[in-house]
Design a protein around this nucleic acid. Sequence first.
DNA 1: ATGCGGCCATTGAGTATACAAATTGGCGCG
DNA 2: CGCGCCAATTTGTATACTCAATGGCCGCAT
Lengths: 287, 287
Amino acid sequence: MTNIPTDLLRTFVTIKDLGGFTSAGELLGRSQPAISLQVKKLEEILNTKIFLRGSSLELTEDGEYLYESARSILEINDQIIAKVRGDNVSGKVRLGIPNDFELAFLPKALRNLSRVYPNIIVEVDCEISKVILQRYQKGHYDIALAMERAKDNEDRDSRDYRLENIEWVYKESRLTSCHDDPIQLIAYPQGCVYRSIMEEALKGQHHPYRFMYTSTSLLGIFSAVEEGLGVTAMASSVIPEHLKHTGSTASLPSLEKVCIGLYYKPRELNVASRHVLDFLRSGIANL
Amino acid sequence: MTNIPTDLLRTFVTIKDLGGFTSAGELLGRSQPAISLQVKKLEEILNTKIFLRGSSLELTEDGEYLYESARSILEINDQIIAKVRGDNVSGKVRLGIPNDFELAFLPKALRNLSRVYPNIIVEVDCEISKVILQRYQKGHYDIALAMERAKDNEDRDSRDYRLENIEWVYKESRLTSCHDDPIQLIAYPQGCVYRSIMEEALKGQHHPYRFMYTSTSLLGIFSAVEEGLGVTAMASSVIPEHLKHTGSTASLPSLEKVCIGLYYKPRELNVASRHVLDFLRSGIANL
DNA sequence: ATGCGGCCATTGAGTATACAAATTGGCGCG
DNA sequence: CGCGCCAATTTGTATACTCAATGGCCGCAT
C-alpha cells in the first residue's frame, strides 16, 4: 500500500505549470535543491521517470498520467481544506457565466460548491460571453466568467484565465468535405467569439462558407451538428465526448485559441465571493 | 496552500473501516501511538475535530466529509500506483457481473481500467447474479461479481465483499400506499435475490402483494417504476438519483441486506486478473 | 462494587528522514 | 565565454517514527 505524499504531487504539478524547478520553489516556499530532491523522491516512489531529462521539462507518458491524476487529487485536497476552513461561510454571490459552460462545467461545479459551502447562495446567469461582459461592466455580477479572443500579453494572475483550444465540431458520418462547396456553419448569433474566429479562419484560407443555422442555445447547436446540418467550432472542454475529433480535420483551417477568464473586483469581493472565486479558479484549471 | 499528507488520510480511512486505532495500526504496520499521533496531526492540520471523542469512533460532520473525500483521493492514488507498477501488463480477463451494475458501476470502472491498464482486455458478461454464479462454477469466468443473501458469518477477506442495504424503489408521485390493496411489485424473473427478499419481507408482515411486471432488463424495470406500475427493491448503490428516497417508507417493511461479493480462484489468476481484482475491490468499496 | 481487560492518550529516548543553506558542477544558449 | 538553470553533495536541525511504559476511561464479569 503505497501513499504518494501530497506535497510531492503539489510540487510536481507546480513545476509543470510554471515550467521550472526554481520558480516552483519560489512559489512553494522551498529551496531549489528541495524541489530537486522532491522530484527525485517522487520518481523513486513510483519507480519510474516522470520528466524527460535533457529536453526541457517534457513529461514522459507516466508523467502525463500522473499530472492529470495529481490535479484531481489536489482539487479534492483543496476542497477539503476549503470546507473545514470555511465552515459557516454564508452569503450571496452573483455569477455570470457563458452558456457554453452550462452543460460541461456548471452542474459539477455547483454540486461541489454546495457540498463545500452549503450556506453560500449562488445566483447564476447564463448568457453568451459578450452579454456577460456587458452586464459585468454594469455591476450585475460579483464574479463573471467570460471568453475573449486570446490577447497577446497577459499581466493577469495566471489562475484567473486559461487559454483553450478551439476545435471544429461536426458529425463524422455527415461531413462531406468537398473543397469547392461552401462550408455550412452552425453558430451562436452575432457577437459570439466562436463565430468571428470561424469566419476569420475561413476567410484567411479563402474558403467559402455560409451560416446555415443560428441558435442561442448550446443544445440547439449540438443537435444541429448531430443532424449533420453543418459544422461549428467550440472550446475544447465544452465539446461532448461523442463529438470530439482528435485527428487533424483535413480541409478545415486551424483555429486560434480563446482566453477563458475570470472577472471580478478584488477589493469589493465579500467573503463568500472570495471562496467561490477560489473554487472557480480550480474549476477552470481542471478543464 | 495546505497539503494533507496521504499517509494521514490512509490512516484515517483505515481506522474508520476497521473501527479501531489498534487494529488500523496492525494493518498499516504502525504502532498504536503512531496512529494516535497521526490522527492528532490530521486534526491539527485541518484545525477541526474529526472523531467525536468519548463516543466510540463516531465521526463529526467534518469527519464524514473528510472520509468521503479521502476515499476519493486514495482511489486515485492507488490507480496511479497501479498504472506505473503495472505498465505493459496485458492479458485477457473474463468477468461476470450482475446486470444491476451495468449502469451504475460498469461504465466508470471499465473506463478507469482501460486508462490504467490499456493492454488488458476484459470480456464482460452481464446477467442476473444467480446465472453469474452458475456460470462461474462452470469455469466461464476468471472473476465474478455476484449478489447473495447476506450470510451470517464471513471468514472472507473483507475487501472481497460488501454488505449493502436494499431499498424500496418507487415513483413518489405515483405511490398510493393503501394498506389493504395488494402491493404491486416489479422484479427480475424467478431466481433474483431482490425478488425473494421482497417476497419474504412482505409475507413477514402479512402484506398482500402481486407481481405486476417482470423484466430481465434493468432499464425495463426502471421505466416500469417511472410509469408508476409498482414498486421494486434494489441495492442502494444502483438506484438512480431521482428515484432515491431517504425517509422511511411508511407502510413498506424494511429489507435485509445483501452481500455483493467477488468470486475467484486465488491460485489460478493470471497477472492481468490480479490487477483487475484489485480494481474491482476498490470499485465495490467506493459504492 | 470491585476488579480486570481493551483501547486510546501521553510521554521519553533513540533513530531515520527531509529540510535549509551553502557550494560545486554540468549543460545549453546567446 | 559567461549566464541561467538544474543536479548533486555536505552539514546541521526539525520532524516523525519505533519501542516501551504509563495513565485514564469504559464495559463486562464476578
